[in-house]
Design a binder for these strands. Structure first.
Lengths: 383, 383
DNA sequence: AGCGAAAGTTCGAGACCAGAACAAAATGGC
DNA sequence: GCCATTTTGTTCTGGTCTCGAACTTTCGCT
């Protein structure tokens, strides 16, 4: 029940204008008025405010067949954001401007416990703050291989960290706002904010690596559920008598459809030296190894089968698939597509499957979006 | 990109006030100011407007230990809504006021084709309009055993109607706005609007009868997905080698967890005259029939197993279960609860299971809410 | 009757947007 | 070179809305 006043009107329109500048830059005030529906006078006042706060800069003047030349506006790239991608074995820190363009990046090994991790991060971030003298840092976004709620890491089986408050110490030591988000959700944010998918109100990201993670956009908002635990489709049992899963159950989707599952299928059918990676398996299959191909096909089949839950339950417009398997999409695509098509009920149309290569940037861009939405996102919304 | 102006502010506050009156009636202007945070002066202006439009009425005056007596405000029950619940074998029409209190109700057999159904409905509705002389009808809400999109019925396997535009002819003939909604979603709306569950932002309704339907509230909004097809968890295969389902797949959740499934389990283990209903089966079990009990337990087990998709995927705060099975909750509750508990991952807390007896009113109240949300719901939201 | 207290109203100030009028800047024809 | 035309961007007025203070009304209590 957030009551509205005049200032709310300005806040709403301000965010609309800021977002239009973000997505259409460079753009003139006159064009902003046309595309937003606000009066030119109002646009002038709002942009004046935004320029005064260094969110927006005046750029070069344009050129038209007739009339006064427009002065283009664009986002001020002096405002930067720190993105941190925490993964089981390495942590990446990066600095990006508000356009999501990265300017620096560094990597460190993931410490075994969260306390030393936070200490290391504080060191690195403070160094970045010193290095980026002059540029205004808007906040820190963190992507996690698990679930965070109110700043605390509450569930991260692949990271062997205990329940820990990550936000407070970082925020305190750096004086910056810190936002935590699940990795798959971060990928959703990246898609919505930087891949021009903001027209799509219902999409799901499925990340496939050691496990399977899902991030959901429902009605244009991230679905987080109670304590941020929504999206754990990876731990739904497809076969309760299947192999044990790290989560305590048996036969979870990720036990059958993850990279690890494919390796297991392969090792079952062929005794091979351990230490084989999933990328090795892809290579083997491409070199004509029938057993490797069979293992991958089995994995693809189960991946598709699990996705039926998502297709039927959420009816998303698109499903974005992220993981090393996209490197061999010719192999996986048709199998998954067939399962998804099989799920399409009469009347509904199946989602588009979009494989996205894992260059490690999706999550990082998501962390940037995480901070951006605080300033650019709709008013009541936590996107 | 809906731009804001002063009028938007009034619209927002107006809806807030209207909703506060709805949920807390009778309530004085002073209390409205206190609870909303708006100034008393503002409340006076808004309530004056609402009284002028006959949304709100002044009621009796209250009594306080000291000071001037407050004049209570309440919703004007002259504004009424027509709710229609379409089910495979019967259609219920009802008239309710804005408080969701029903004043009349009538039933007709479901015609075999949508065209004659619409004609019959038009007749009935026009009669209701004539009968409710003086009262202002706000619109028509319709609950369907299937999915509707843009006024067209697009998926209704249990109703044997083809794709058909239900909205236009009804709206045209009656001059009223017509809203269509899936039955499970209608139950969600009923819970949110009339059962004081508006504090709960994430809940799922599971309806169990011939099939299994689900309605989802995500971030306080109904999740409809592309073409309104979200919520068809009932047609996710739990076992792809299971019995065929009406949807074309095999081994869907509803093939294992519906009333029909329990009857099948029973008939497999004991040759009994056909024509046995699910309620009969419940009675048999209560009378000590071990095979009936076994069949119901199997159904309960699968119901719970399918709910793991919902628990893991959506992490709702509550799951409301509607259907005849709630009459024997002592039998079903523990089995389902066990499965749901098994799905709770460390860090997350499992949803509360709430059995709701199927008195046929949940859907009807949902149809009322469907129309109410047009006037009472948040601004941009389609709840 | 008079006082205190609470409800409800009135009124001026401030924030904001719409729309019209205006100023500025560029093009092209004469 | 000059002026009409066109487009951008600014200024100003009027209207809507909320806030907050002052005010009126209507009770109970002494």
């Amino acid at each position: 029940m957030q009551v509205a006043s005049s200032e709310v009107v300005r806040d709403i329109n301000r965010r609309i204008v800021l977002n239009l500048i973000r997505t259409r830059q460079p753009i003139s005030r006159a064009d902003l008025a046309r595309v937003s529906g606000l009066q030119r006078s109002t646009i002038s006042l709002i942009t004046e405010e935004l320029i005064g706060e260094h969110w927006v800069m005046e750029g070069p003047t344009g050129r038209l067949p007739r009339g006064r030349r427009p002065t283009f506006l664009r986002l001020n790239d002096e405002r930067v954001i720190i993105g941190i991608d925490v993964r089981p074995y390495q942590i990446t820190l990066a600095l990006a401007d508000v356009n999501g363009k990265f300017t620096s990046q560094e990597v460190l090994a993931t410490p075994p416990d969260p306390k030393t991790a936070v200490e290391a991060l504080i060191q690195k971030v403070q160094a970045m703050i010193r290095a980026s003298r002059g540029k205004k840092i808007q906040g820190i976004g963190i992507s996690l291989p698990g679930r965070a709620h109110l700043g605390r890491l509450v569930f991260a089986p692949n990271l062997k960290w205990a329940d820990f408050d990550l936000r407070s110490p970082l925020a305190k030591a750096t004086g910056l706002e810190v936002e935590l988000e699940n990795a798959a959700n971060a990928c959703v944010l990246a898609a919505v904010w930087f891949d021009r998918m903001d027209s799509c109100q219902n999409l799901v990201v499925v990340t496939v690596s050691e496990g399977i993670g899902t991030g959901m956009l429902v009605n244009g908002q991230i679905a987080r559920g109670l304590q941020g635990m929504a999206g754990e489709f990876g731990h739904v049992p497809l076969d309760p008598s299947g192999p044990a899963c790290g989560c305590g159950s048996r036969g979870c989707w990720e036990v059958f459809g993850s990279n690890r599952a494919a390796l297991r299928y392969y090792h079952q059918s062929s005794s091979h030296p351990a230490g084989l990676t999933f990328l090795d398996l892809l290579s083997l299959a491409d070199q004509g190894n029938a057993r490797a191909a069979k293992a991958l096909e089995k994995m693809a089949h189960y991946l598709g089968r699990g996705m039926r839950m998502i297709v039927a339950g959420l009816a998303p417009e698109r499903i974005i698939i992220i993981g090393d398997l996209t490197r061999s999409w010719k192999r996986f695509g048709p199998v998954i597509e067939a399962e998804v098509q099989a799920q399409a009920l009469p009347g509904g149309c199946p989602p588009r499957l979009i494989p996205v290569h894992e260059d490690g940037m999706a999550r990082l861009r998501g962390t940037i979006a995480l901070v951006l939405q605080k300033h650019f996102g709709a008013v009541g919304e936590a996107v």
